[in-house]
Write a protein that binds this DNA or RNA. Structure first.
Lengths: 111, 111
DNA sequence: CATGTGCGTAAGTCATGACTTACCGTAAGC
DNA sequence: GCTTACGGTAAGTCATGACTTACGCACATG
């Protein structure tokens, strides 16, 4: 899986409100699918499908425990996305600062 | 528009590969729709539709110039999403660090 | 060992999103 | 003033995604 593909999976995973609700729930700690599904407005298999997408995107870690699987947030799960956003928007911020700087010099020059 | 809704729009905007390609193109500077569409594998109206979604999400700024509209990256466009990711994943990192710390203490205690 | 529990996946349904072509309003150029 | 250029939106098509119920496998329990 390439870096760009990983970012694609992460952003697609985060673009769904149900999956974001799952991530919010998991902030309190890892929990099994059945518990997780209880507090969500969709069926248990739907939660399972979303967990699959989140796990494939590298956002969750799974801990098997007998016939249960505990899902928790992967600590480094968001690193790639953060790096991508910094890279994409870093230039915009720098260009903005440069433009403001140039405008200031122009004004001074014209005066 | 609420904060949660703004995050929703931003993440949905970023989840599409064509829109991410548009953002990549705009790193070099603001440009009109026609120029932008030339380097993309979809039609000009499709690009216009995507620009609408990106602008509504607060990621772009539009500068009218006669019958042209220059689209550029909004410098602060990604701030809300960054804050959201820090908030969502901040606990996970802290909990991970705490767990590692507790494990270390347990090991020391047991030894 | 039989039964119950947990959960992932298959298959189907339906809404939504990404694209297209066509059209129209506004500004620019001659 | 007419023609050209720019670009947003309408309307339609089609693929995709989110959900459902049903099923089956693995583990737990009595």
């Amino acid at each position: 899986m390439t870096y760009a593909h990983a970012i694609d999976e992460t952003l697609i995973a985060l673009a769904d409100p149900t999956r974001r609700a799952i991530l919010q729930r998991l902030r309190t700690g890892a929990m099994p699918v059945g518990i997780l599904a209880e507090g969500l407005p969709v069926s248990r298999p739907a939660v399972s499908q979303h967990l699959r997408i989140l796990t494939d995107a590298g956002l969750l870690i799974v801990t098997p425990q007998g016939n249960r699987r505990l899902y928790g947030l992967a600590p480094a799960g968001m690193n790639g996305l953060r790096a991508y956003l910094d890279d994409l928007w870093g230039d915009a911020l720098a260009a903005f600062a440069q433009a403001a700087h140039d405008l200031s010099k122009d004004d001074t020059h014209d005066t």
